[in-house]
Every structure is written in structure tokens, then in C-alpha cells.
Design a protein around this nucleic acid. Structure first.
Length: 550
RNA sequence: GGCGACGUGGACGAAAGGUAAAGUUGCCGGCCCUUCAAGCCGGAGACUGUGGGUUCGACUCCCACCGUCGUCACCA
């Protein structure tokens, strides 16, 4: 077989040389140890946690090393492409502080290693496709879909391995004449790799996350170029990551099974193999068994879910960090206020297995993250969330910013801030008591107390100096009221001999709390009183007394 | 079915052959106390998937088995 003739027949119009490409995309001039990595998603419009996990890992690795992070759009499957997907992607990742140094942008490219959309790189792939044909390492295949199905069925029957290889590789060793004839008839064809591997051969491979793995050589003649001349993922990956000078490939571990093929391709093309980091999948409990988070079944896979629930991006980021780097939690405990980028991210600390996604832990992390924010920051984040998901609430917050910030300042600051808000969605219920329109009574008075006692105490309270100078003075009033109605002003005394009292000062404050906030738990009552103001306090309590009178 | 990865308390995960197998989260309880979802203290929960082997000694190394997940497309 004259491979050169075949190559020229297949690719008659190539007018760039490999040499020219090498020169156009020279090795990057970066400091020693600088990592070049990328995100290479398909533009399906669906951005999920897996993307984030992978993006976060690449981002940290590159930027921490003074390297380059770029965005490449794997749009080789036109069927799955969704308009506006690139924009969504950049926005979603930007939301999590993952920003690119180069790559695809909303409507173009930025950087000198492009184009960064694979479909615009068709010519480039063909240079290498032709080279492979010339070297006898690739050949056209004219099998139809149904022929391929037939092969699969026969393999199933024969209990053979699946795939296009060995005697099943129908077009692997056809003559030039046969190929030419098919070609002239206008039959569609794909370009297949001519694998020289054998599944008898195993080899060791070192993955930066999985460690040393034993892999089996690939013996399948995978498709390199689809019938439309667009490469498959495999071919595009190898060509692009070579020309874009990627040093580290971070991707999901579902790719491990085709890794041997990728390695084969790198070798066949004479490219240097990048380092690989294969990340385990995010799992979820489904009944009693684990499974990979699924796009169809699990809304929590989509990044939009976290946004609409009102998880601050920082919370999701920190939670994923606890999963990605096992020493992150220890670091965070030691440095509660340090910027997250001070953490030294290391691929060595990544777990080779897939982890279960734990919503409870995410919530805990989120509570902590929000509790450490300043009231200003909470306010602005909350408002921007509400603008999108709760217009009414957002209007209310914006109408009186100072008031909102006063509310959000309760129990904030100091070493041990309160952790009342987990997600922005919760904020309305938490803050609602300060807005008459949102004020709802959710709890009732404890049944063991006499209604008249409660009424009397509430009455007495609004007659007292409820706007006391300080918390202590205020609490003194409360104690006096308690005493007057047979409640112990001292909790210890009450516990020592409960039979002497109707209750204790804590119960008294519960009455006021329920009347004032509608709930059995709330932040500090004195603080609340100061914010609500005397008139509204009196009004709420009077309303409550009236209700009790019925 | 082939191939591969993974298997430490409910969850996340330390311990890269050496004392009672960290810590976080969740659960339970107590304390504190003007409430609590906060804080403090404590508790339960693991014969490190199973069975062999190497070793003075194994979560750690080797073998087998089991289980879970992934993958076997002109999808990525």
C-alpha cells in the first residue's frame, strides 16, 4: 500500500505543515514548574458540579504555580450544542472565581494558542490526520452504522470483546483501489487509528491523583475523524493539548479507560505526554446504593441549583475544597479568616476515590462562611440573590439599607459569630420579624403556663422601660417582672427548687420573645427591641395580649 | 462479559510498616443560660470489605475473593 498516495487522496488540500504549526504555537515561556492546564467542556449549556470540581482543581494548580489556565470549547458534537452555552459557562465559573487567562470568550477568542473552539480547528487536525495516514497509522473506514451494530451483535454472540479491532476491523487492510472506488462513489467515511497494541500487554502509568495504575494496551481502531471531518474527543484532545502546550490534564476518571489510546496517539504523533490528574466522580446516595450524580435525576448537580437556593459561591467553593484536599479543613480551622487562595492546594492531597456529596456538610460550611462575612457583605450578597429570586424581598432590603444592615449585624463579628443563615433562601424567614409584612407567628406559648400570667407579664413589660440604657438594665426589669408574678429571677434558684416558682426568668423572656418575634428562638431580645423601636414593640405585644384574651 | 479504579465509624477523610486508628460533619446527652439553630464539655459509632500470605510488627506490601463505581459510540 502506498500510504502517501492514500494520504493525498484523502486530504488533497492541506496547505499548512506540521513545522509551521509548531512555530505558530511555540512552547510557552514560563517559569520552571509553572503549570498549564485547561477546562475543556462541551457547550451543552449545562454547567455542573463536576465542571466546577475540575475547574477549581485546574485553576488552583495553574495560578498557584504562576502558570496559565485556558478555556477550550469542545464543540465537536454539533448535535449537543446549545446557543449561549459559552457565555453561561464563563459566567457560572466566574461566579466561583474561576477566571481564564486565555481561551474562548463570549463571541471570540483571547490568546495566541487558538482558535479555542475545536470546530474552528478542523484544518489543524487534518494536518496530523494526514501525517498518520502517511505513516500507515490511520486509514479510512466506510462501515455504516448498521454494519457497526452488526459487528457489535456478533461480538456479543461470540462473547468476544466489543470494538473495532482484529478481524472485526473490516477496512483495516483494504487495498488502495477498493478505498478509491468507495471514495469515488461518494460514500461517507471516518478515519480510524491503526492500533498496534495488544490487550496481552500491560504497562504502568503514573497518574497524579490515582498513583500508579496498571493499564492494558489499546487494540481498538478508534475513530479519529468523524464523517464530517471533525475529530472525536480523543484526537482533538491529543492535538490540542500538544499545540496549546498543556502540561497537566485534569479530567474525570471516566477517561481512564481510553487513556491507553490517548497515550498511543501521543506517541504516534511524536508528542510529549502531559501529566494526568483523573478525578473520581461525585456520588450520591440513592436508596442504599451509591451512584454517580446524574444530570437527569439530581437537580443538585447543576450549578444553577446552588445559586437559586442561595448558597454563596464561597460556601460551595469551600465545601468542594474540603472534598478535594483532605488537609483543607485543618487549614481552615487554623486560619478562619484567611483568604481562601492562601491555602496551598496540592494534587497529592486529592482522594483517588469518588466521594459522596454531603448536603449536611455543605450547609455547615455555608453557615460558617456566612457567619464570617461582614454585615455589609452579607447585605450585598443577599440583595443580589434576592434581585434574581425574590424581587419583593429585594425591594424591601434596598428601601432601607441601614435598617437591613442593623438586622444583619446582630451577633456578627467577634470570635464566635452567630450562625443563623445557611442559605440566602433562609434569610427572609430569619429577618422577617423585622418587617411587619413578613412577620409571622410560627410558635405557640408553652402550654404549662397560665394564660393570665402571660398576659400580665406582657402588660407589665410594655409599661416598663423597654428601651433601657443597656442590656443589663433591661434584664433587671425583666427579673423584677418575673419576681412579681411568681417566676424566679434566678434560673439556678429555680432549678434547685422548682416547686417554689411558676417558672423562671428564661420563661418570662420566652413570652416576650414569642410575642415579639413569633418564634421561640431568635437573636438577643434587647438587640431586637432596639431595632424594632418602642412603638412597634408595644404594638406587637398589645396585639398578642388581645389574642390571648379571646 | 472484558478492562480499570476504588473499599478506614452514617458522611468526608488522617495515619506514606511501629504505642489507645486523627480531625471534620451528622446523631445523642450535659453544661452555660434571657431563646437557640450559637458556644463549651462529653458520649455512642471502625475487629480499617473478606480470606490468606510476607514481617518481630500490616490500614499501609503481595495474592485471591467479594462489593461499589466507571468504561467498552462517527458523546464528550
Amino acid at each position: 500500500m502506498n500510504f502517501e498516495l492514500l494520504a493525498n487522496t484523502l486530504f488533497p488540500n492541506i496547505n499548512i505543515t506540521e513545522q509551521e504549526l509548531e512555530e505558530r504555537f511555540p512552547p510557552r515561556r514560563l517559569a520552571e514548574g509553572a503549570i498549564v492546564s485547561r477546562m475543556a467542556p462541551s457547550p451543552t449549556g449545562f454547567v455542573h458540579l463536576g465542571n466546577l470540581v475540575q475547574g477549581l482543581t485546574s485553576e488552583r494548580l495553574t495560578h498557584q504555580s504562576g502558570g496559565v489556565l485556558f478555556l477550550r470549547i469542545e464543540d465537536t458534537d454539533a448535535k449537543r450544542e446549545v446557543a449561549g452555552a459559552v457565555e453561561t459557562l464563563i459566567e457560572s465559573l466566574g461566579h466561583y472565581n474561576i477566571n481564564f487567562d486565555e481561551g474562548a470568550t463570549k463571541d471570540g477568542d483571547f490568546g495566541s494558542y487558538g482558535p479555542y473552539r475545536q470546530r474552528r480547528r478542523k484544518e489543524i487536525y487534518h494536518v496530523y490526520a494526514k501525517k498518520l495516514v502517511e505513516n500507515g497509522m490511520a486509514y479510512p473506514c466506510f462501515c455504516t452504522e448498521s454494519e457497526l451494530e452488526q459487528i457489535h451483535m456478533e461480538q456479543e454472540k461470540a462473547k468476544a470483546n466489543f470494538g473495532y479491532f482484529g478481524k472485526w476491523a473490516l477496512w483495516r487492510d483494504r487495498s488502495y483501489e477498493e478505498i478509491k472506488e468507495k471514495l469515488d462513489s461518494g460514500a461517507p467515511w471516518v478515519l480510524r487509528f491503526r492500533s498496534n497494541g495488544s490487550i496481552e500487554n500491560k504497562f504502568k502509568f503514573n497518574d497524579l491523583i490515582k498513583g500508579q495504575m496498571t493499564l492494558t494496551e489499546n487494540d481498538i481502531d478508534y475513530v479519529l475523524l468523524k464523517s464530517d471531518g471533525i475529530p472525536t474527543y480523543h484526537f482533538a484532545h491529543v492535538v490540542d493539548d500538544h499545540l496549546m502546550r498543556t502540561t497537566h490534564v485534569v479530567r474525570g476518571d471516566e477517561w481512564i479507560s481510553t487513556l491507553p489510546f490517548h497515550i498511543q496517539l501521543f506517541n504516534a504523533l511524536g508528542f510529549k505526554l502531559p501529566k494526568y490528574l483523573h478525578i473520581g466522580p461525585l456520588m450520591k446516595m440513592d436508596g442504599s446504593s451509591k451512584r454517580k450524580l446524574s444530570k437527569r435525576k439530581d437537580p443538585e448537580l447543576a450549578l444553577t441549583y446552588y445559586k437559586s437556593e442561595g448558597f454563596p459561591p464561597e460556601s460551595v467553593y469551600e465545601y468542594l475544597m474540603t472534598i478535594l484536599n483532605s488537609n483543607f479543613e485543618d487549614w481552615r480551622r487554623a486560619n478562619p479568616d484567611a483568604p481562601i487562595n492562601d491555602f496551598k492546594f496540592s494534587s497529592k492531597k486529592m482522594n483517588p476515590a469518588g466521594s459522596l456529596f454531603d448536603n449536611a456538610k455543605l450547609c455547615d460550611v455555608s453557615k460558617n462562611v456566612i457567619s464570617r462575612m461582614s454585615a455589609e457583605k452579607v447585605y450585598s450578597s443577599l440583595v443580589s440573590w434576592a434581585e434574581e429570586f425574590d424581587a419583593d424581598f429585594s425591594a424591601k432590603l434596598k428601601k432601607d439599607k441601614e435598617y437591613a444592615i442593623k438586622i444583619l449585624s446582630i451577633g456578627r463579628g467577634g470570635k464566635k459569630p452567630r450562625k443563623d443563615i445557611t442559605v440566602w433562601k433562609d434569610a427572609k424567614a430569619y429577618m422577617g420579624l423585622f418587617y411587619d409584612e413578613y412577620f409571622v407567628k410560627t410558635d405557640d406559648f408553652p402550654e404549662q403556663f397560665d394564660k393570665n400570667d402571660i398576659k400580665n407579664i406582657l402588660n407589665e413589660y410594655i409599661c416598663s422601660d423597654i428601651e433601657a440604657a443597656d442590656n443589663e438594665t433591661w434584664f433587671e426589669h425583666l427579673k423584677r417582672i418575673a419576681e412579681k408574678y411568681g417566676f424566679s429571677p434566678d434560673v439556678k434558684a429555680y432549678k434547685a427548687s422548682p416547686e417554689l416558682y411558676k417558672g423562671h426568668v428564661g420563661d418570662v423572656s420566652t413570652f416576650i420573645r414569642i410575642a415579639l418575634t413569633g418564634k421561640t428562638n431568635s437573636p438577643d431580645l434587647f438587640e431586637i427591641t432596639k431595632i424594632l423601636g418602642k412603638e412597634r414593640v408595644i404594638q406587637r405585644i398589645k396585639t398578642q395580649i388581645a389574642k390571648l384574651g379571646q
